[in-house]
């Protein structure tokens, strides 16, 4: 009986998710287009004055990144739930606690990391101070990983519900608050010339707490969802 070693199985799941994402590039591009479009709304809403925009840039960039990550978390398990793959995953001998981590990692690579890499473009558009761009990318990269973990909890709890999309926002946004606080504070500190490391350290601490605890909730949510 040659069941797969767990790490190999996680790698297989990750490859599968990334291959599926590559096969439908529109789904990958959606959050980026959404990110760009919403960024454009702010100058229209707040007026083109660069001073105002620059002052709000850290907050705007982080809030929009957060919403883009939230937007995509509904689809995390939904397609697998609809075609029965999720049932197979739950029946696989490997621990579900680790298998869901590859889903989270795939979601982060597809949305979080791409958002972080695209953010400098929008930061310049909003006139963010140049020295704050690198910290912005770093804080977004770290922060969106935590957002993916928490979004995955929301996705697993609403996987069996027909209209889960809006519901995820209500479940998950309160849990996004600490990430947003320290994420935007990191960029603000960079703008003001302070060191960014303490904020990134706190984001990293949240990430490690999330990696340790979130899979329990995600696995439980999936088992409940499958059985609903």
């Amino acid at each position: 009986m040659n069941t797969l070693p767990t790490v190999a199985f996680m790698r297989r799941l990750l490859r599968r998710q990334l291959l599926l994402a590559l096969r439908s590039p529109v789904d990958v591009a959606n959050p980026l287009i959404f990110f760009g479009m919403v960024i454009v709304l702010f100058p229209i809403g707040l007026g083109p004055d660069p001073v105002i925009l620059a002052r709000f840039a850290p907050g705007i960039l982080w809030i929009v990144a957060l919403l883009s990550s939230l937007l995509t978390s509904d689809a995390l398990f939904r397609s697998d739930f609809d075609d029965g793959s999720l049932e197979q995953l739950l029946l696989s001998p490997q621990p579900l606690y680790l298998s869901v981590l590859s889903y989270v990692l795939a979601h982060w690579l597809i949305t979080g990391l791409l958002l972080a890499l695209m953010a400098p473009l929008f930061a310049i558009m909003l006139g963010l101070a140049v020295q704050a761009i690198a910290p912005l990318v770093a804080s977004l990269a770290l922060g969106t990983a935590v957002l993916s973990l928490v979004g995955c909890i929301g996705a697993s709890l609403t996987v069996s519900l027909r209209r889960g999309g809006m519901l995820i926002a209500l479940l998950v946004l309160p849990l996004y608050v600490p990430v947003l606080i320290f994420g935007s504070a990191a960029v603000q500190a960079a703008v003001d010339g302070f060191s960014v490391l303490p904020y990134l350290a706190i984001l990293a601490a949240m990430l490690s707490l999330g990696i340790a605890l979130a899979p329990f909730a995600i696995a439980a949510g999936l088992r409940i969802g499958i059985d609903a």
């Binding site: 600490p178 409940i224 609903a228």
Partner: peptide, 28 residues
């Protein structure tokens, strides 16, 4: 949101446990 009320109870239990872990972090 859940039709099956037993599953609803379990899902809410998971959500409220996730909430309790997050409340101290949110407050701090």
């Amino acid at each position: 949101a859940y039709d099956n009320k037993e599953a609803a109870g379990r899902a809410c239990a998971v959500l409220s446990l996730v909430g309790t872990v997050n409340i101290p972090i949110i407050y701090k």
